[in-house]
């Protein structure tokens, strides 16, 4: 079976998309877990500030999420645009 150049490039794009999203999801998952973990600890110590702490946790996690979204964007670009 002869492999044409365009097919090879297309195959690499698909593989790259899978690796981008797969590996890109590791960091945000672990990072957001640390934020959630400390937020639970903080509410355990100071239950009166639950509202403020929840807000802070969500903002922090949203920032941590951004690299996961970059990975998603790159994966979708590799799948549909490039």
């Amino acid at each position: 079976m002869a492999i044409e150049g365009t097919h090879l490039v297309q195959a690499a794009a698909f593989l790259g998309a899978g690796l981008s999203m797969g590996l890109g999801a590791i960091g945000p998952g672990v990072g957001e877990g640390l934020v959630g973990s400390k937020a639970c600890e903080a509410i355990g110590k100071n239950p009166g500030e639950a509202g403020l702490l929840t807000r802070t946790m969500l903002v922090g996690q949203a920032v941590s999420e951004s690299t996961g979204i970059y990975a998603l964007v790159i994966a979708l670009l590799l799948l549909f645009v490039v």
Binding site: G16, A17, G18, L19, G22, I26, S37
Partner: peptide
């Protein structure tokens, strides 16, 4: 198809650890 497996496999590692930590 290979990429789909790799994507789901690697992609589940981080969230699993993070959810556990929370």
């Amino acid at each position: 198809l290979l990429a789909a497996g790799l994507c789901m496999g690697f992609g589940a590692i981080g969230p699993g650890i993070g959810i556990g930590n929370t």
